[in-house]
Nucleic acid binder design. Sequence first.
DNA 1: GCAAATCTGTAGCGATCACTATATTTTCTC
DNA 2: GAGAAAATATAGTGATCGCTACAGATTTGC
Lengths: 203, 203
Amino acid sequence: MIATDLPESRTGSRGRRRSFDMDEAVETAMRLFHARGYDAVGVAELGAELGIKPPSFYAAFGSKAGLFERALRRYASGEANIFARAQAEGGGVAEVIERTLLLAAQLYPERNGVAGCLVLDGARNSADPEACALAEVMRKAGVAAIRDFIAGEAPERADALADFVAIAMKGMSAAARDGADEAALTVVAQMAGRAFRRELAEG
Amino acid sequence: MIATDLPESRTGSRGRRRSFDMDEAVETAMRLFHARGYDAVGVAELGAELGIKPPSFYAAFGSKAGLFERALRRYASGEANIFARAQAEGGGVAEVIERTLLLAAQLYPERNGVAGCLVLDGARNSADPEACALAEVMRKAGVAAIRDFIAGEAPERADALADFVAIAMKGMSAAARDGADEAALTVVAQMAGRAFRRELAEG
DNA sequence: GCAAATCTGTAGCGATCACTATATTTTCTC
DNA sequence: GAGAAAATATAGTGATCGCTACAGATTTGC
């Protein structure tokens, strides 16, 4: 989705140097999109926060959706990828899923105006089909990773169990964006984790 | 929030008759807001769907947010108030909550472009503080009703249990808006219902 | 009939939306 | 230094946003 002739694929070394740090810019945009959602953050505001004018913005990112895609990728490759973090600590399916949900309960509550999950809620209700599609791809990739992992122990029911985990995370993300604190989310994470463990064992 | 000098408080009978049906207009607006969210539906589109021009729109509803409030009220007073419907059938707390969640699993999946809960997700990520506040009031009222009902059997843990129910419903609404079907939502509703019942009994 | 009251259509308000045409500045290769 | 390449600033594009001034149409009370 990122055009191949954008800055990161720079071949020649000639030309004026960029006056701002693209990583910092993506980080800032990620925070803004996360806090208020894709549509509610305008290019004018992004430019002001980044300290750049529109032509620099479009030369660097191609479009608002292009910057959103970079923000999504940055988000998913960092600490927000709670399933990867839970999986890295090892253990069986139930243990990893319980750990994932508890990590969500820690990560999702509001901090500095940011709450919930950017991938799950960043493009929610957006009028821009491109932003919605970008978020959907990331969502589906995340659920697919969880499903494949669950399939190692319960191949027949992996789809339904992964759907359950996804819905629990969507609920926690939405609740966090509505103001839920870590205590409330932890209760849900524990209850959902136990429900998952029982469903996995009993099926 | 509805100004007292709006049409429903008409005292005199003089003046030109309204050329459209306000109930139908609110119903149409409700459907549009529900399908795409508050910000994604513009006044121009509402006017076109309703077959009225801006001055008629503002004379009747005061503002876009005024129409949204009417849509929310209409929504909450109809079949979408699944907790009231579940409660009306009687039974204990666990039974009513389980029924509520199953009703959500039936109601939330996409039908004619509409999915999830208007109150929970209609103003999600909206840039309009008024729309957000209106939805928040309705959300809190719904959770309060559930909490008060649960308090009849578990006064100490009513808050946490009601939070759990709210988060489950938010997850189901968000998932439905992402395309989840009744089967997926029913699995979650059953698991969440069982988790709720156990938590209620064991606490 | 006439005035008050109410709604409707025409037309357009200022603000913001994402985005861009153009020219200038900077930096490299040669 | 010449020329190519890339990023910049100035300024503004058309479209859409929610909303409104104004005059005409319609219906009532008197």
